[in-house]
Design a binder for these strands. Structure first.
Lengths: 329, 329
DNA sequence: CTGTTAGCGCTTTCAG
DNA sequence: CTGAAAGCGCTAACAG
């Protein structure tokens, strides 16, 4: 019932190796035969068996995208589904499939990644730089697995796609300063994430550029309660803050806004800016300036870098730093 | 460098067929040998080559999840990333991998699906019932491909996982009625989607049960402009509406809220309920009753039904109708 | 340019 | 219970 390369070869009256070459666009086939074979395959709707191809050529034909545990949260989910879609699209245009690797309840990806690699299920990986332990990364590098980071790893120099965190933060902060805000505080995510540091750096730069000396930074994990506590502390220590820059997106910003509203009854003359963009910001009744990340572009770029790596070409760049878009109020 | 079953067999001093049996838990191996082989494989960190297994056994070891084009939108993305995560988790617990099939810019999935099937890249599919053309579905059925719908197809009777649309809509509407609302209108999504019909049916039932005769339904596609127009029309024709039930989630609800706010300056005494739940609803300053869908459960159930199908067992149920959770104000 | 010949690593009869 | 042998469908030398 299922068509194999043998049937095609027989019908075309050639050897199957010829069919293989014709189909794979390799040289060593006369133009006439190639066209004939291609047409025949098309007519018969022949698609080579992926497993057989994979086994014989030692390439699986698919790439893996490693999701962070976070992706279950709706806001983070919005981020990742955009990336997934973009990667899938790019993958298909390279004739690859996309495999999703998602951490289990234990949040440990090392096992699944190793397994999928050892079993030769994927030819390469895209993974988020923050959510990975160093040991796994060094294994990947040692074993010479093609992979690309989304975000940058603080410890490892490797192919990566990131947004310009510093510039974005600088832009938001500068904007608040230009609006006459004098006491612009910063609510920051975990201090050990590189992007947190970069965004804080941008914040500081902008303050300096604006000639503002005052600054205040409060760090918090991504746990709701801690965010609340951090903000309360910030406002208690500095009651006369007139603007706030929130470094992180996702659910973090909801918790922050939540706490902010509880602490300050009147936000009408208070500047808020966030390093992330969601449409519902427009519905909150308070102006929120924000940075929008080019999600699809992140996925596309990461994928195409990965395919360069897989196909043995030298990727265009090592570290992509994509521009963000500011929406200012 | 790479370990194969031959090495294991050699080291264990048995035939590779014995190793295969031991590893796959098949009978025909003495307990002693099995344990020994298992231990050896474990120690050597041997993982069978997936492609070889797939080729020999004619099972790819992965399943496909077909995303709708919608998934790029952030709110829909939130939905799908939860489902993806759940499916991936369930898949891994069955030793399957998850492949993502996402439509290209042309929004046509027929080609990719057919290709992945013909190439034997996947052993089964999960797909959303609404976003698929009838021809593709009938092909799947004819070719006897194991697949499960998320949502229900109006035309095809097949394995599916859905939420109880009618009950959810009924619950929301009844709640508004119980709050003394007398003129509860309904803003509905596309009329040809089954879930739209079911939710409207629930809406009508609740009105009837509450002894309310008045009703008004306005349909709209998911295009921003149309939603706005539909709502304007609704309010123009029925200025004294005192509550609104919105049948659809995703970006639809944002557009609807948007238009609603523009049309009605005072929403303080206006009931709103939505068949979908997002945390930011809490931040809008207006109470919104809503139905929360069990996203993870949808994914898990769809996946486990699919695995029953693939593994030749009879799935527990044909149509799963999962309960939703109401959040009422 | 074309066809023949070996495998890729695993599963699966089928004898022993 | 065990092992030898025959493929699964394709790619990749290597002759011709």
């Amino acid at each position: 019932m299922k068509l194999t390369i043998n049937e095609i070869a027989e019908l075309a009256q050639v050897a199957k190796s010829t069919v293989s070459k014709a189909l794979n666009g390799q040289k060593g086939v006369s133009e006439g035969k190639r066209k004939f074979i291609l047409k025949l395959a098309e007519q018969l709707d022949y698609h080579p068996n992926a497993s057989a191809q994979a086994l014989a050529s030692n390439r699986s034909g698919s790439v893996g995208l490693v999701l962070p545990h976070q992706a279950v949260y709706s806001l983070a989910g919005a981020y990742w589904s955009s990336v997934i879609t973009a990667v899938a699209l790019e993958a298909r245009s390279h004739n690859y499939n996309l495999m999703i690797l998602s951490p289990g309840l234990d949040d440990d990806m090392a096992g699944p990644i190793e397994s999928v690699l050892k079993r030769r299920n994927v030819d390469g990986l895209i993974l988020s730089a923050e959510h990975l332990d160093a040991r796994t990364v060094s294994t990947l590098i040692l074993e010479d697995v093609p992979f690309v980071f989304i975000g940058r790893s603080p410890s490892v120099q490797h192919y990566s796609v990131d947004v310009d965190n510093e510039a974005g933060a600088r832009c938001l902060t500068a904007h608040m300063a230009s609006k006459g805000r004098k006491r612009i505080a910063c609510l920051a995510g975990p201090a050990d994430y590189l992007y947190t540091q970069q965004r804080i750096s941008g914040y500081r730069q902008a303050l300096r550029d604006a000639g503002l000396e005052w600054s205040a930074i409060e760090y918090s994990s991504y746990l709701s309660e801690e965010i609340s506590v951090a903000l309360i502390r910030l406002l208690a220590q500095h009651p006369n803050i007139d603007a706030l820059f929130i470094t992180a997106g996702g659910e973090f910003v909801l918790d922050a806004i939540d706490a902010l509203r509880r602490q300050k009854s009147d936000l009408s003359d208070f500047g808020i800016s966030v390093f992330d963009d969601y449409r519902f910001f427009d519905y909150l009744g308070i102006p929120i300036s924000r940075i929008r990340q080019p999600l699809s572009q992140i996925g596309t770029t990461a994928a195409s870098t990965l395919f360069s790596l897989i196909e043995g070409e030298k990727p265009e760049r090592l570290d992509w730093v994509l521009d963000t878009e500011a929406v200012l109020y």
